[in-house]
Amino acid sequence: MVETVIGQFEDLENLLHAGRQLKERGYQISTLSPVSIHEQIEPLLGEKKNPIRYLTFTGAITGFVFGILLTTIPPVLYPLPRGGRPIFFIPPIVILSYETTILFGVLFTLVGFVLFSGLPSFKRKPYIPEAMVGSYALLVENPAEKYKEIEKIMVEAGAGKVHRDEN
């Protein structure tokens, strides 16, 4: 069972200050926020890589190949003669492959989000509803039972409430 200490902050600067101190002491930290704070938090937590782009690219290529195969193989296997027109020709291949390129790009990005974000997840996890409204929360993993030390750092930095969450 991993205990998480949650500190609630009204001010982002205070959270960042507490986060910096805890990080220096080797704690694993993360945040909850009502708005995106990636610009402020990334220098503290380190820049995350973005493998979704590879998936998007793979999706786009897959979609393009799928579009070409879809528009070339069936007309050859099941020809549909239309008054002397070619069985297959370039414009439909380009247009339909363009659409499937984008469609698969979008779908693979969606898969990427599901793979990397950990969502959907309906298990109980450390959370405070105030973080969906107007407060920020600092989550600190506390495997070594150092609650007092973590609480002290958070309170000194300006945390309003600090409590333990076990899951």
Binding site: T31, P120, K125
Partner: peptide, 28 residues
């Protein structure tokens, strides 16, 4: 809401995926 809690991790991936959706939707 898919279990959204607003972690820095979730915001990061949402922003990344959303940017790609936006980029793909313009030519579409």
């Amino acid at each position: 809401a898919l279990g959204w809690r607003g972690t820095d991790f979730e915001w990061h991936w949402l922003f990344r995926a959303y940017t790609f959706f936006a980029v793909l939707i313009v030519p579409l």
